[in-house]
């Protein structure tokens, strides 16, 4: 004999199981986490161009894929390095100050991972220091991934969704993607 209360109990159990399954499935889709992610070889850097204008026929460029840009752990490591290596001292949490903003659409020296890598390693003439020999390639690629997340260029399931410190901006995860444009205006004052 089955009492109404017992069948109600079973329905609740089924419902709970369904909810758990749905939660588990959605978690599976959250991020395709690979535990062996390798950064691109730094030798990809010769592919970097500063200008889209090429004399003669346009050649197809090598593109660099930064695996860390798909890896939430690497991006969070990038965020830690961003603060520890004092990137935040100049660019703050993306709004800029001494250096230009990193959360907007303006990219003076290019928004592609290889461009940002080159900017960090080589430095740029208007004040960006060269970190060559100070950071390992692996650390730089993590920074590259995090820097791109600041303007919403990474997938939402990879970008940081929380902040350990005082809230001063929207989370990288909920930052609307700012479609990169090459900025014509260098940050420096211009000579007459």
């Amino acid at each position: 004999m089955s009492s109404p209360s017992r069948s109600g109990c079973r329905r609740r159990r089924e419902l709970l199981a369904a909810v758990l399954l749905a939660a588990a499935l959605s978690a599976c889709q959250r991020e395709d986490r690979r535990f062996r992610t390798w950064p691109p070889a730094a030798s990809a850097i010769p592919a970097v161009r500063q200008s889209e204008l090429q004399p003669g026929p346009t050649t197809r460029d090598l593109t660099v894929r930064n695996e860390y840009g798909d890896n939430a752990w690497a991006v969070s490591e990038g965020k830690r390095l961003y603060n520890q290596f004092n990137c935040s001292g100049c660019h703050f949490q993306g709004g800029g100050g001494i250096g230009p903003p990193l959360m907007d659409s303006q990219w003076i020296y290019g928004s592609q991972p290889e461009n940002i890598f080159a900017t960090i390693v080589e430095g740029r003439p208007n004040g960006m220091p060269s970190f060559r020999g100070k950071l390992g390639n692996d650390q730089v690629w993590k920074l590259v991934a995090y820097v791109r997340s600041m303007s919403g260029l990474l997938a939402k399931d990879v970008a940081s969704g929380r902040n350990d410190d005082m809230q001063v901006r929207s989370q990288e995860q909920s930052t609307e993607k700012a479609r990169p444009v090459q900025s014509a205006v260098p940050p420096a004052s211009q000579r007459p």
Partner: peptide
């Protein structure tokens, strides 16, 4: 002067 982004409250110290 620096064209900063006002969405970051901590910008420019």
């Amino acid at each position: 002067a620096g064209g900063l982004d006002t969405r970051d409250s901590s910008a420019a110290l």
